[in-house]
Design a binder for these strands. Structure first.
Lengths: 185, 185
DNA sequence: CAACTCATGTAATGAGTTACATGATTGA
DNA sequence: TCAATCATGTAACTCATTACATGAGTTG
């Protein structure tokens, strides 16, 4: 049974066969919106997936110093991915460094606190804009409304990012108001 | 300079001196809402913080087989924490296994997809309830409105969790409607 | 007397990041 | 000709999880 990263790669390959290099790029975006990996993770994981019979590759005459390998999922790979999607999922621990910092924000003066919240807000607003842009390109596509098309799933996840980032931006505005109320001037 | 975990522990100790065991428990909740660690991470990190002069301990005649050590931040420790709170913060990569699964949900039939979304919704709703309960206990406390009190920061972070979880639950409801619309039956 | 909580640590494993290493083709 | 992109891999290191190990006091 592959790792989470392995399933991320299978998810990418189920949408479109790719080289390791392409997978590493696609892991930055769009998959990077909710899962990231560098190429130094991708290549060994591809080898493990291949050893498990979940992906296979053919060699295309390449442009680098080594042979260029194009990977695609096997029937077993697609089946494993399909099964994993609906498998039991333990509640996920949250890991948010920004919130961890805000939790100790009572130690600093209100001006420094406001500055921090502004920077946090900017980050969320930037992500929000990126999600909106991605969703806009999907808007015209008919497949985005067909539950068996990958574009449908892309639309679901983008909509989720949109809503949580929108909530985060509103939260930051609320915090700024709280800080201003508590310490005016 | 301590790790993120080190700053999490300093944040706990700045609120209340504790033993390693208590810190490990407090890392489950409330800090566990946004950062987690087990006791096997806590003890070595406390030793590192002490070696760096950021915490110190006194020995209280203990109940375990070894001496019970109660830790508190030093002046340097509190200063380091205060500085870290407002320090430069690189944009954080998101890591969300639930969204990663939903991204491949186009591979499964609409009934299985709805079931998955229901389970995701339950998880968010449970967390939302926990946040609401924690916020309710803070509601009566006057310190929760004083920006220099730790309860103020607790209120900020809980409010953030509340808003993002609320958005997530609404997102799940939206997905269920989308799935029902696309595949009625 | 069994189970649970308090209390502290180490060891092994797995996952993730950063750095090292190479080299062809394409476009400015 | 210089830089970027395509393309693949390994090595060192850090961080996190799980398992091992011990033992007193309290509650049912």
């Amino acid at each position: 049974m592959p790792s989470d990263l392995g399933h991320a790669l299978l998810g990418l390959l189920a949408r479109r066969p790719s080289t390791g290099y392409e997978l590493a790029r696609r892991m930055q975006r769009p998959v990077g919106w909710f899962w990231t990996a560098g190429h130094s993770q991708v290549y060994p994981e591809l080898a493990r997936l291949e050893a498990a019979g979940l992906v296979r590759h053919d060699v295309v005459p390449g442009r680098g110093p080594r042979a260029t390998k194009r990977y695609a999922p096997t029937a077993a790979g697609t089946a494993a991915l399909r099964q994993w999607v609906t498998a039991e999922l333990a509640p996920q621990p949250v890991r948010d460094l920004e919130v961890l910092r805000l939790w100790s924000v009572w130690l600093v003066d209100p001006e420094a606190a406001s500055d921090l919240v502004h920077r946090v807000r900017d980050g969320h607003a930037q992500r929000l804009a990126a999600y909106e842009a991605d969703l806009a390109t999907l808007d015209g596509v008919a497949a985005a409304h067909d539950p068996s098309a990958p574009e449908f799933a892309s639309r679901l996840t983008l909509e989720g990012g949109l809503r949580t980032r929108r909530a985060a931006v509103e939260w930051c505005d609320w915090m700024l108001a709280e800080l201003a109320r508590a310490a005016p001037g």
